[in-house]
Amino acid sequence: MFEARLINSVTFKKVLDAIKDLLNEASFDCSEAGIQLQAMDNSHVSLVSLALRSDGFDKYRCDRNLTMGMNLASMSKIFRCSSNDDTVTIKAQDDADTVTFMFESKKQEKISDYEMKLMNLDQEHLGIPDTDFSCVIRMPAGEFARIVRDLSQFGESIVISCTKEGVKFSTSGDIGSANVKLAQTSSFEKEEEAVIIEMQEPVTLTFACQYLNSFTKATPLANQVQLSMSDNVPLVVEYQIPDLGHLRYYLAPKIEE
């Protein structure tokens, strides 16, 4: 028996919105520790890694490890039928071929359930090595989304260049070029407005706008985003989901031919 209950359906809606651009379907691996998902996008350029800890749920029970293959568009349809503040309970029997989502309104006057067929997905798990990154940048998630959106108008790639002075986002295309520089904040009123850079070595890497834009669909999940970079390894874009877990995106850099 698997049962996971979350007080506000909106958190799960935000998670789905954050991954359904990149993934058509995905396997949710459920264990006593929580729910995990790891999947590459269709073109195998990026990797999505989601972890929701069991202690972040209002109620969580997982008697046996289970993998639920789900179509994310179907799941989104179901979650669109819930109100943001509905309590959601995800339920499945051991070895079941369906999963049930139950939504309860706050005043309990409306209870709905949706049963969805599970899919058998070919799982390809990748081992993600521990890396000591040369640069770790923390910045407001909204600011990162804004910069990626703005620069995407001008080019197909964004060069992210991090030094101890700050981080620079650059692009160029048919109409010209664009640069956005962010300095590390020395003082800030709110922690979520801070730009903080931890640099061992300066790094400059190039990434495809298309994927960076897809990652920023996670912006509603967190105030801050963390970018981790080292030469010749994938960028990690991480959003912490408050009290529940994290969503990480890995993106292979573009390299000179």
Binding site: V45, L47, L126, G127, S157, P253, K254
Partner: peptide, 14 residues
Amino acid sequence: RTKQNRISHYFKKT
């Protein structure tokens, strides 16, 4: 010119 590597170039299957 730049080329786009795949993520599996960096992370191996387990």
